[in-house]
Amino acid sequence: MSSGIGRYAFALAPLAAAALWGGMYVVSKWGFALIPPVTLGFLRVALGAGALWLVVAGRGGPAPSRDEWPAFVVLGGWVTLTVATQFVGTELTNASQGSLLTVLTPVFTVLLGAAVLGERVTAAKAGGMTVAGVGTAVVLAGQYDLASTAAGNALGVALLLVGSAAWAGYTVWGLRAVRRHGALRAATYSSLASVPMLGLLAAGELWRLGISPTDIPLTAESVAAVLYLGLASTAAAWYLWYKGLEYVPAGTVAVFFFAQPAVGAALGAALLGESLGSGFLAGGALMTVGIWVVSRERAGTTEGTADAAAE
């Protein structure tokens, strides 16, 4: 059994996942300019699923039984819906819209966790989520003109909302698979299940655009974008996200998602020369406090949550 410190470290694994996802704001500046969004999403998940499968195969152990695959197919459907709507929605909107709407994921996750898994929304969790959310809003207000957030493509905004809700679904409905198979196998087989679904969507996108797969440019930028999205923000990040579910409830894991825009802003400043907003430090401090408060509820309701997920 893991030590208390080890369990706490794994409970913080979703924070590392959020940091890796924060890098997507930088990488997308390369990827979307070179590869259509759904096709890029397919390449991302196919590479990530392949990398995860190699690790699982190297470790050995039985594959899921025929009766277990339907659950992974459902999770693959959540993955497909998340990636397709998130990437297309991001292409149709601006950075402020994308940042604000994607951080609604924790809200959706807490609501689904309470409705589907029976997780308790304690005063500490609600307060910590609120503080972290305010911190995120302060960071974004310093980076973007939030007064213009409502402007732009309504379809893109709607798709980003669907993407946020879909990732909440992947988190909540994945808890049972994580507790039964472990984070690595749950992330691997759900990703593998999504590959043919995203492949069909990508083929339809290329057909609609009149683009042949051979027309996609093979440049250093496109290769680097796919490698980062596939290995870092998919294989590593999805495993880390599910690893947190081994130790804490879905609603607790969700709070770490608030860190994603802050990491994206910091990487944009470091790698792209973008300026950090005036509220970055203050917002980051509030976010840290909120995440710390929620993360202290490590395993208090984990067993009850697992029981509810297994019903």
Rank of each mutant, 00 (worst) to 15 (best):
G268M: 01
G135I: 00
V26M: 04
G135K: 00
L227Y: 04
G163W: 03
L34C: 10
A237L: 09
G142A: 03
T302W: 10
T102F: 02
A141G: 12
R59P: 03
T288W: 00
F257K: 08
T252F: 06
S28K: 00
A203N: 05
A132C: 09
A137Y: 14
I216H: 05
G142H: 05
P64L: 00
S278G: 13
A308V: 02
Q86G: 02
N153D: 15
T149N: 01
F108A: 12
G273A: 05
G210L: 01
V55T: 08
Y239L: 09
I291F: 12
V162Q: 00
G77T: 07
W238I: 12
L92V: 02
A17R: 00
P36C: 08
G41L: 12
Y239E: 06
L240G: 08
L209Q: 14
Q97S: 15
D67A: 12
K125G: 13
A71N: 03
A71P: 01
L184P: 02
S99K: 06
A19M: 14
V293M: 15
S222K: 00
L15S: 10
T122F: 05
F258W: 07
G152S: 06
L101I: 13
E303D: 14
Y144K: 11
R7L: 15
L175Y: 07
P196C: 14
M129C: 15
L218P: 03
P37K: 00
T105M: 15
F258A: 10
L245V: 13
L111C: 08
G300H: 11
A95T: 15
A114G: 14
V26S: 10
S28N: 02
M1N: 08
A126F: 15
T136S: 14
Y247T: 13
G273F: 02
W69I: 09
G89T: 06
G142E: 04
A187T: 02
A266D: 02
L198D: 04
N94C: 05
L54D: 01
G48Y: 00
S99N: 11
A46Q: 04
M24R: 04
A269V: 03
N153W: 05
T252H: 10
A13M: 11
E311A: 09
V74T: 10
V74E: 01
A124F: 11
L231W: 07
G251S: 15
A158V: 07
A220N: 03
A151W: 00
A177F: 00
W78P: 07
V293Y: 06
L271R: 13
V178A: 05
F280C: 04
W173G: 01
G199W: 06
L75Q: 09
M1T: 12
P70W: 03
G31F: 00
G279N: 06
A11E: 07
A18G: 09
L104K: 04
L54V: 11
G174E: 05
G277E: 04
V293K: 09
L218M: 10
V223L: 15
V172C: 13
A309I: 08
G60P: 04
A254C: 10
L92E: 02
F87C: 11
P217W: 03
N94M: 09
G41C: 09
A186K: 01
